[in-house]
Amino acid sequence: MSQPSDNRLRFKLYKEMLRIRIVEETIAGYYGEQEMRCPVHLSIGQEAAEAGACAALEQRDYVLSGHRSHGHYLAKGGNLKAMMAEIYGKATGCAGGKGGSMHLVDLDAGFLGAAPIVGSTIPIAAGVAFAAQMRNEDRVVMVFLGDGATETGVFFESINFASLKNLPIVFLVENNFYSVYSPMNVRQKGDHRIVDIARAHGMEAHQADGNDLECVHQLCTQAVTKARGGGGPSLLELITYRWREHCGPGYDNDIGYRTEAEFLSWKERDPVAAYERKLIANGVGTQPEIDRIAKDLKLEVEEAVSFAKQSPWPDLDTLSTQVYAN
């Protein structure tokens, strides 16, 4: 991205990333009111990976995710109001209140669903890619997973199958070094384990800085282009860091599983601030322009919160419906 004509893309990427940040910060801000009565896994700190990856996809492409899915849903174009309402348990939510934060869905945006049983959406995503391939459709699937999910059996089995069948899928691993409060060294060995697993199965794999928005976007674009052209699956491991507690709105650097210093060192590498600096330094944007974007986004998100709060509760009749499809 060196042409001035790419500046529009740069702004689009930045805005997408900042939007996730603002949505998540807003959720964190309101959570204490105890009106969002479901667990939330925020992705503050990991926005570059999420925005950069989804920007490589077309609307017709599919995304699936796990428990920490807000950013993936938003970056893929998921409806913000429907997401907020879902977190508030309202009838206007994307799943009618049945799912909550851990079960987002927006079919129009190609966000097929998120489910919080770790690892479980990996083979499902492979199945979606399998169908696209069978029907000769021009669709690529991207599945988001964490470092912890790469320890599940289905991860290995899905990698093997996707590689065997040359499926049009990208396995997007956001490695934030933790599975809840368990650090890497009690779960995995080796710094290249995750990419090596994919490579051992004959799959192209790359490890990259997940906080570098343009780098993420470039890598993902290559992987998606390859998959679209029949070149098969890839795995991308993006190194990043979750700022907030594993689940919930607060910080948990004080409880003993990681240090404040470690957190602060990652905060230094804030993907949002870093890209902002880059935009300004390269003359792509000015501070007032950036401030205006942030202001507009905040308005949009506050509006979504109001929408969610004012929305009606789901009708009790829906409690027992939709167990089976017609």
């Binding site: 009565r37 309202k90 209140g97 049945k98 851990m102 789901p314 009790l316 409690l319 027992s320 167990v323």
Partner: peptide
Amino acid sequence: PDHPCPTSPALANS
């Protein structure tokens, strides 16, 4: 009852 557990408190209460 004979269906999964919903997430919304408005539904889960029942």
